[in-house]
Nucleic acid binder design. Structure first.
Lengths: 150, 150
DNA sequence: GGGATATGGTCTCGGATGTAGACCACCTAT
DNA sequence: ATAGGTGGTCTACATCCGAGACCATATCCC
C-alpha cells in the first residue's frame, strides 16, 4: 500500500494528537489487531450527547445566565417544546444543567448550568470559534461541490 | 434567593466568553430586543454538521491516516454503509474530507482529511478531552438521577 | 468453469425519531 | 369574561436511520 505518509499522517500538536489517539485506541490503532471499533469507548456516550442537535445550543444559551423554559425556547428559536423538554431532561440527568422550580403563583422553572456544565463551555467555545472561522471556506466548498456535481 | 449571580453569570475565560457572546448575539443579547434566535446564525450551519452523530467520529477516524471505505466502516464500528456514504458525501461537500479513486482492478476509494478538515481536529480534541474528563462525573450524575426519579 | 470473496456503493422497507400543534391547569391583566 | 403567559404533555404526521438485499467487477482456488 503506497499512498501512505508513513511518519507524518497529519500535522497536529502533540496534546490533541494524544487525546485523539487515546480515544481511538479502542479501534486497535491501525494494525487492525482487534476489530472492536470506536463504539465500545466510554467517551462515545458523552460524545453522543454533544452530538445531538440541541444540547450544544442549549448549553450556549444558558452560558449567559439561567433561563426559564419559554425564554430558552425563544432564544434557541426553532426548537419544539417537546424536544426542549427532552433535551433539558437529558442534560439534567447528565448533571450539566440544574432545574429549579420556584413556587410562585404560576410556578416558574429556571434552568442553569452546573459546574460540570460550565466546564463544557471552553471546549464548546473552541468548536464555535472554529465554526466561525471555517464558515466561509465551507460555504465556498459547498458551492464548488454543488456546481461540479449538480 | 441566591439563584442569580448578577455580575458574574458564569466563570469563563474572556476568549471563550467572547466567542460565545458573539455567537449568541443573534438572539439579541439578554435584553430580548429582537427575538431572532440562534437559528439565524450562519455558524449554526456548521455546528449542525458537527451535531450529527457520525461526522465527528469519521473525522477522528481519519485523523490517523487516510482510510478506505470498508476500513472506515470497521473503525467506526456501528455505522451502516448508508450513513457512512451519506456522511462522507456531506463531509466532502463541506470540504473537510477528500475522496480519491484509484483505478485499480476493483476500484479503491480513499478518504482523507483536507487542510480544512485537519483544522477541525484541535477543537474536536478539546471536546474529546473534556468528554474523557467529565465522563465519570456524568455517569455518576446519571445514576443519581435515575435513582431519584426512577 | 464455478463458487467464494472483496471492492464501493445504491435501494428498499420497517421502525425509530423529530415536528407541529392542540390541549391542560393555573394565574394575571384588561 | 376573555385573552394571554406559565411549563409542560399528548397525539398525529413526516422524516430519518439501520439492516440487509442487491449490483458489477475482478481475483483466488479448485
Amino acid at each position: 500500500m503506497t499512498r501512505e505518509r508513513p511518519g507524518n499522517p497529519v500535522v497536529l500538536d502533540a496534546t490533541a494528537r494524544a487525546v485523539l489517539d487515546r480515544f481511538s485506541s479502542f479501534a486497535g490503532g491501525d494494525g487492525g489487531s482487534d476489530e472492536g471499533g470506536l463504539q465500545n469507548c466510554p467517551v462515545r456516550n458523552v460524545l453522543d450527547r454533544v452530538g445531538d442537535k440541541w444540547s450544544l445550543l442549549i448549553l450556549i444559551a444558558l452560558s449567559h445566565q439561567p433561563r426559564r423554559f419559554a425564554a430558552l425556547q425563544r432564544e434557541v428559536g426553532d426548537i419544539s417544546k417537546r424536544m426542549l423538554t427532552q433535551s433539558l431532561r437529558t442534560l439534567e440527568r447528565d448533571g450539566l444543567v440544574a432545574r429549579q422550580v420556584f413556587p410562585t403563583k404560576p410556578p416558574a422553572v429556571e434552568y442553569s448550568l452546573t459546574a460540570l456544565g460550565e466546564s463544557a463551555l471552553p471546549p464548546i467555545a473552541g468548536l464555535v470559534g472554529w465554526a466561525a472561522m471555517a464558515h466561509d471556506e465551507i460555504r465556498a466548498a459547498r458551492q464548488g461541490f454543488d456546481a461540479a456535481a449538480g
